[in-house]
Design a protein around this nucleic acid. Sequence first.
DNA 1: TCCTATCTTTAGGCTAATCTAAATTTGGAT
DNA 2: ATCCAAATTTAGATTAGCCTAAAGATAGGA
Lengths: 236, 236
Amino acid sequence: MPPSTHARHEKPAAASEAIEDYAKAIYTLSRRSGAPVGTSELAARLGVAPATATAMLKRLDGIGLVDHQPYHGVSLTPAGERVALEVIRHHRLLESYLSAALGMPWDRVHEEAEVLEHYISEELEELIAAKLGEPSHDPHGDPIPGPDLEFPEEAGSRPLEALEDGETATFTRVSDSDSQMLRYLAERGIRPGAHVMVKGRQPFGGPLFVEVDGAEHALGGELVRRMRVSAAEQAR
Amino acid sequence: MPPSTHARHEKPAAASEAIEDYAKAIYTLSRRSGAPVGTSELAARLGVAPATATAMLKRLDGIGLVDHQPYHGVSLTPAGERVALEVIRHHRLLESYLSAALGMPWDRVHEEAEVLEHYISEELEELIAAKLGEPSHDPHGDPIPGPDLEFPEEAGSRPLEALEDGETATFTRVSDSDSQMLRYLAERGIRPGAHVMVKGRQPFGGPLFVEVDGAEHALGGELVRRMRVSAAEQAR
DNA sequence: TCCTATCTTTAGGCTAATCTAAATTTGGAT
DNA sequence: ATCCAAATTTAGATTAGCCTAAAGATAGGA
């Protein structure tokens, strides 16, 4: 039997520095909106010409890391998201370590981590994480994905469902950053950072009636369990 | 004035991983003999085809890192030697650090350092060296070039000139690894590791009469000041 | 001296990642 | 409903590193 082109579900064949950078950029650019990322936006972020990004996206689509709809943007596949999260974990662990263990000044750690994130082995990643005590956040307060690539639950965050009637909070994120959910919410003007207030709910597990930035929505089911909220923030 | 192709004596324009590997390989291969390195020998060391090495050597010659005499081998220029020593310093500092600070097992540090040596910044290099207390040797006992890229003087080593008449010692190296000197010596069968015995000397700063592996040589001038010897070693 | 085995270089090609310039598509404004 | 500006893709080229196959140089032995 000829070896499958697809390499079914094996090791994600070490991505190059460029590939990892594209995955990371697509991840962060689509994180807020949940919507696909435009080619020019991505190219600008990476400091390359738009045509370069197009070419790379075709390649990434070919190896199954992204879903590229020509003229309509790109989004990560689950495999692509794993690449992105792995790099982000490396980056934030390195920033933490360089700052904490080596006393590297704040304004330098990012630049250094930006390079090294692509080259440390999984074993070194683990040693660094262990030395730091499996930190959940980096020195900038950004959450560090765990070894399983899941983000830590935010301290003090609860599912939207857990709010009392009349209680106010800030919508922070969807717990496993499901992009379909994020897109659905974004279409209704509900974005991370939005102020929410539970006006009431239907009994027997029915929907919550939630006021978001002045507009009322009925949200229920899986959605209100995955949406995380925390105490209302001050303007930042 | 058009910008010079040569970039007179500025920063040695960050070498790629491949370039650094070639420089390091040429350095270590020519270190013992002092003679130019053959293309195949180099290619084998780097795990590339000989034709690949030829092409790279032409490029390295062009940018002034090596002196490549077609069909007669290659040697490092002073600029190339700086590249090699910088990488070796990175490598040995990393090995030391990974082992001492992160408890990485011995058999893994080499592999990890082999990659990272090309990517740490000068600033991180300095932080690591400082954290380790500016070590002069790595965990394998190999000497670490200092920030000035000079190797530390070996403890207990002296210039050949300092030996008493009749004293026996082991020739270890030429103090700044001048390849012309090494070649000159190699042509006479005098190599690092050789047992030497001073049989006598001419007065008034004249040459020393030295027996090396049975043959007698008259060595003087700069040579006997640069040649370092240490207490005779046991067979290894 | 000459011949051949070995080493080295040349020739021609490939992939990854980038560029510029020229199509092409899309979607909003008239 | 059409058109145009902006976004995107295609086309064609470049550079770094690598490969294989073929041609050329060197040097040691007969």
